[in-house]
Amino acid sequence: MNATPLLNPFSLFFASIFTSNILLANFLGMCSFISISKDSKSSNGLGFAVTVVLVITSAVNWAVLHYVLIPLQLEYLRYIVFIITIAATVQILEMIIDRVSQALYMSLGIFLPLITVNCAILGVSLFIDIRTYSFTQSVIFGLGSGLGWWLAIMALSAIRKKTDKAPVPAGLKGPGITMITIGFMAMAFMGFSGMLQVQ
């Protein structure tokens, strides 16, 4: 699976949002996806935060990978190194947001620190390595994945608003119906996969 010449930036961007949605095709970042989608306002905040962090960490991790790990033949350290850079990025971002916009800081609340342990973020950085993306491709892939995650959580929170009021069998209330919903959503998104794929 070497360099992917098929992908011009636009198809990569489109593919990472729809056909290879990080959530619904790769099932990454599920825990916050399920727990936060109860509330659409929080979902929006978290979606935005995930997108910003994804763009920054995909760029930073690409640089770390290509300028530090590969020259030193230390690629096997990528898991630990990526996690450290993600944690540091989130920390710095949190301080900057605290200074720049108190309103945004309050609305993101605890979600920002939580993103550190969101596996979608680490997943994207690892895909960048596995699929040997260029710098531009990495950033586009990061942005697209973030927007895709945002789209998916907004869609799920909208659906959950309906299922909350729907006559769901008692045993399926809450997580049960949510998991089934996610399954249907994943199938729907699979419909896009005929168009193009990033694998």
Binding site: V68, L72, L74, V81, I84, Q91
Partner: peptide, 18 residues
């Protein structure tokens, strides 16, 4: 030694950045 040093240096750089 390269591995711990690399991880240490990267962490130190990030800590300094923070």
């Amino acid at each position: 030694f390269a591995a711990p040093v690399a991880v240490g240096v990267i962490s130190a750089v990030l800590a300094a950045l923070i």
